[in-house]
């Protein structure tokens, strides 16, 4: 317990040190605010509107994240049970994955408008592939002997799925979920860049037009915070669900 607290103090200490050096450097070297605002400049521009933009982005990312993962997992389950579908659809999924989201985003806005749904779909597109690949891997990762054990006792396909395949795949699924948390935010912000009137991507874009660097910084930091919140939430969930595997990242 004690080591846990001291462990947490290290990054906090370094962050505070970094902020102090940043603040001093800006003041002493007289760096213009449009190039690099000091931490206090940034804090000064934070108001309730930033929180509401942050909430919008978080909600878009989270919705895309949830839908992509449900869809990815279902697709993976279908793949694992049908070789022809896997062989036919997997290359298409790879093709989708190699298409840059930035190139697709304008199309999404044309199709779905500048509202909520285009960002959700952008988020989904970017989250879909990791969950699909990892779930397929996880669902196939059962030990051969475990399969033999179920077969010896005449376990049905459904029993093998629910009592063996699905639990075995969970560690793989969760590592994909953790990868997708930051990707989901990327998707939402790219969507907002192309066409939106709210959200952190919108704030970054508009503040860049006005050379309002402190606001830009506040939005960048807020977007990083969104990713952290999602990642932390998934990590907590992972520790609860996959209790038999201790992962020590964050």
């Amino acid at each position: 317990m004690k080591t846990k607290i001291t462990d947490a103090l290290y990054p906090v200490g370094f962050a505070i040190g970094f902020l102090i050096i940043w603040e001093l450097a800006v003041r002493l070297l007289d760096i213009p605010i449009y190039l690099l605002p000091s931490p206090t400049d940034i804090v000064a521009v934070i108001d309730s509107s930033l929180w509401s933009h942050m909430l919008v982005t978080l909600l878009e990312a989270l919705t895309g994240f949830v839908f992509a993962n449900i869809l990815g997992l279902i697709t993976a389950i279908i793949f694992v049970h049908s070789k022809p579908i896997e062989k036919g659809v997997f290359p298409l999924a790879i093709a989708l994955k190699t298409t840059p989201l930035v190139a697709l985003a304008p199309l999404l806005v044309v199709w779905m408008g500048t509202g909520y749904s285009s960002k959700v779909v952008a988020s989904m597109l970017i989250c879909f592939f990791p969950i699909l690949v990892n779930s397929v891997k996880g669902l196939k990762a059962i030990e051969h002997e475990a399969w033999e054990l179920f077969s010896t006792y005449k376990g049905t396909k459904a029993e093998i799925f629910w009592k063996l395949r699905l639990p075995t795949s969970l560690p793989y699924v969760f590592s994909a979920l953790k990868i997708s948390t930051s990707l989901a935010i990327v998707g939402a912000i790219v969507g907002e860049f192309v066409g939106a009137n709210k959200g952190l991507g919108y704030v970054v874009l508009v503040s860049s037009y006005h050379m309002d660097t402190p606001v830009m910084f506040s939005a960048i930091i807020a977007s990083a915070l969104c990713g952290l919140v999602l990642f932390w939430g998934i990590s907590q969930l992972e520790r609860k669900i996959i209790f038999w595997q201790r992962t020590d990242d964050l």
Binding site: E143, L149, Y153, T156, P167, W244
Partner: peptide, 25 residues
């Protein structure tokens, strides 16, 4: 059947692992 490895389900307790063959098939 007993394998070289225990082949226990890590998400099940000892008693649940033992009961597993009795609850499938």
């Amino acid at each position: 059947m007993v394998f070289q490895k225990p082949v226990l389900m890590p998400w099940l307790t000892a008693i649940q692992n033992i009961a597993l063959p009795l609850t499938i098939g």
